[in-house]
Every structure is written in structure tokens, then in C-alpha cells.
């Protein structure tokens, strides 16, 4: 992958976030067909397509520094976006290991990890961090191990404890979520946590997904894509801050839709953790404005078709009702009715 220059940009207030042409090209467009159904669509999280967001276990892109800074701001306003129930300490260290090993192996130009037994030395050049600590000894880090490392990585992380043939969301760093709250959902079982998703329980999706995840093996992570839409490139669309971003949903007009409305795709990856036997669920969000997205006509046409066919329950659940039609209308002139190739590739 080409070394991106890390961008200085914001995800709030003046919203200076933009994608470079390279970031648009590698955007994980989620719709392989003209119709969208809620499904599990899980595949092995193995390295595919050099340069794509699937190349590495944890993707670092041009927005890395800005996203870490946005997380810092969110935590400063509201520390409850991070939670770790007391029985999750082994999982905290598992996460330190997973993130440090993965980043240092995949991006040696930015991250370095040196181990001498339990003495670890971690260097994060983009964030200018240089830390020596004793693995397993919390007192040698400036904060809890999982909070420490999850402040240095993009995307949200939810760590699920595996017990009684179920998975419990007992730990998380969640600052860029699509309208759910880890402070509220912490401790929930898999199905309680997914309770609000419409159209899914009825078709048995969560039973099958849970059974699949209970059998997830260390060394064989899996992934899927999920999506929603957001007005303004805002990472923190939490229920906590709904009073801040809620009014934006009513601000979309035919004139500003291309700039304001963003497709938000979540690359969700699941890793079994070795010490704790817990499962790490990473939800990495990618934002793209409609103006950026329509630089590829195939994506423009396909998005219009998906939104037109979307089940009303899912539209409501994803919070699209106030502006979905405006988006469809704005995309209309780009529609020529042509049959589109299957698959998510831009052309």
C-alpha cells in the first residue's frame, strides 16, 4: 500500500473530513447486488487485494491520526464510551497483544514492538508514543490496557466474553457508533444486544450467527460488511449525543445532499482471543460523501436501486427516513437503467 500522508481533518464542528481519490477507490462499497437484505454474509478475514481495506487484519488509512484525535475528544466529553467489566482483564491484555502485534507486523514504518520476555517496548510514530511496560502488569501503563491500546486504533471494539454457550458484550471502546451505546449495552448477551435490529431475529439470523461465532477459532478471524448513512462526516453518532447530531437529519436539501449525506460502511471483523477465550468484534467505519461516491457511476446507480428497494423497517432502524427520498431523487439523473455487474468493485 502506498504510504498515505495522514490527514489533518475534523469529524465535528467544521467537518473538514474528505477522502483522497485513492481512499475513494479503496472504499469498501457494500452492495454487490441491486437489492439489500439483512444477512450475516460472513467470510474468512484473510488478506485479499493488496491496497484494499482487506489487506491487513487491522486497516490503517489516511484518516488514522484524525480519527484517534476524534476519539480522544469524545472520551474527554464522556468517559463512559469505554467500559471493561472486572472479569475482562485477561481480554484487555489479549487486545494489547492483538493490536500491537498486528500493527507492528503490517505497518513497520509506523509501529514498532520489541519484546524481551514480559518487558515490551511499543513505539507509535504517527501518535508520537514511546512506551515501555510489563505485559500483564497494569500499573506499568498510564491507564487500563484496553483503553490504552484502543485509543491508538481506528474503529470501535467490543469484546465479548464466552460463557454458558453465549457471548456477552462485557468490554468495549465505542466512540464512532451508529446510534447505539456501550454504556447501556454492556453486559448484554448476544441476542439482547442485537434486540433492536428489525427483520433479523424473525429469520433466525442471530441463532445461526451466534452458533457460528461460538465456534470461532483462534487464528481464523472472520469478517462481514454492514452499512448505514450519516448526515455530515460525523463519527460520534451516538444516542448520547443525539441532541447534537439529530437536527442534522432534518437539514438535508436537494442542494446540499451530495456534500452532506455520507454512506457509512462498517467493516466488522471478529477475532478469537487466546488467553481469555473472548471474541473481539471490531467495527471499523468508512465514510464517503455522495459527491465522492458518484465519481464511480456504477456505485451511484447501485446505491439508488438499493435505497429504492429498502424495507421500510430497515430504513427506519438505520435512521434514513428523513432524507432517503432526497438521496434517491438526487441520484435519479445518474440512473440509465443499465444492468450492473455483480460485485462491489467500482467499475
Amino acid at each position: 500500500m502506498n504510504t498515505p500522508a495522514f490527514k489533518k481533518e475534523t469529524f465535528r464542528d467544521d467537518y473538514t473530513f474528505r477522502n483522497s481519490p485513492e481512499a475513494i477507490r479503496r472504499f469498501p462499497f457494500p452492495f454487490a447486488e441491486d437489492e439489500y437484505m439483512y444477512s450475516v454474509n460472513i467470510e474468512q478475514h484473510v488478506s485479499t487485494n493488496p491496497g484494499s481495506v482487506f489487506e491487513h487484519a487491522i486497516d490503517i488509512d489516511e484518516h488514522y491520526i484524525a480519527e484517534c484525535e476524534d476519539r480522544r475528544l469524545t472520551l474527554e466529553r464522556d468517559p463512559t464510551r469505554y467500559i471493561a467489566l472486572p472479569h475482562m482483564m485477561d481480554a484487555q491484555w489479549d487486545m494489547v497483544e492483538l493490536i500491537m502485534e498486528s500493527l507492528s507486523a503490517d505497518y513497520p514504518q509506523w509501529f514498532e514492538l520489541t519484546k524481551n520476555g514480559d518487558q515490551w517496548h511499543w513505539v507509535n510514530k504517527p501518535l508520537e508514543i514511546d512506551q515501555t511496560f510489563t505485559f500483564g502488569d497494569t500499573s506499568t501503563l498510564p491507564m487500563e490496557p484496553f483503553e490504552y491500546i484502543s485509543r491508538q486504533v481506528q474503529g470501535d471494539w467490543i469484546i465479548m466474553d464466552h460463557r454458558d454457550d453465549d457471548l456477552f458484550a462485557d468490554m468495549g471502546m465505542v466512540t464512532s457508533q451508529a446510534d447505539w451505546s456501550i454504556a447501556f449495552d454492556a453486559g448484554m448477551s448476544f441476542k439482547e444486544w442485537h434486540g433492536p435490529v428489525p427483520q433479523a431475529n424473525e429469520i433466525g439470523i442471530f441463532d445461526r450467527a451466534l452458533k457460528y461465532l461460538l465456534h470461532l477459532q483462534y487464528g481464523s478471524p472472520v469478517r462481514r460488511l454492514n452499512w448505514t448513512m450519516t448526515v455530515n462526516p460525523r463519527l460520534d453518532t451516538s444516542p448520547e449525543e443525539f441532541p447534537l447530531w439529530g437536527p442534522d437529519n432534518a437539514s438535508v436539501t436537494p442542494e446540499n445532499v451530495g456534500e452532506k449525506v455520507h454512506l457509512r460502511v462498517e467493516l466488522q471483523a471478529l477475532f478469537r482471543l487466546p488467553r481469555s477465550n473472548a471474541i473481539a468484534f471490531s467495527v471499523r467505519g468508512y465514510l464517503i460523501s455522495l459527491d465522492e461516491l458518484v465519481t464511480y457511476p456504477k456505485w451511484a446507480k447501485r446505491l439508488r436501486r438499493v435505497l429504492t428497494n429498502l424495507h421500510p423497517d430497515l430504513s427506519e432502524y438505520k435512521g434514513l427516513d428523513l432524507y432517503r427520498q432526497t438521496v434517491i431523487d438526487w441520484l435519479e439523473p445518474l440512473e440509465d437503467g443499465a444492468e450492473l455487474s455483480l460485485g462491489t468493485q467500482p467499475e
Binding site: S181, F184, G195, P196
Partner: peptide, 25 residues
């Protein structure tokens, strides 16, 4: 704030979620 009671329950907190009802408008 005027809260709408969401149909989502946390056993840990022993409560339903309340979210501001007029945030959008």
C-alpha cells in the same frame, strides 16, 4: 429533556433506554 422510551432493556442498569424525542426537530 423529553425522553422517548426505546424498546431496549439493560439488565446491568435495570432500565430501558430513554432518548431525547425532539432532537431532530
Amino acid at each position: 429533556r423529553h425522553l422517548f422510551v426505546r424498546d431496549h432493556f439493560s439488565r446491568r442498569l435495570g432500565a430501558y433506554m430513554g432518548v431525547m424525542v425532539d432532537a431532530e426537530e
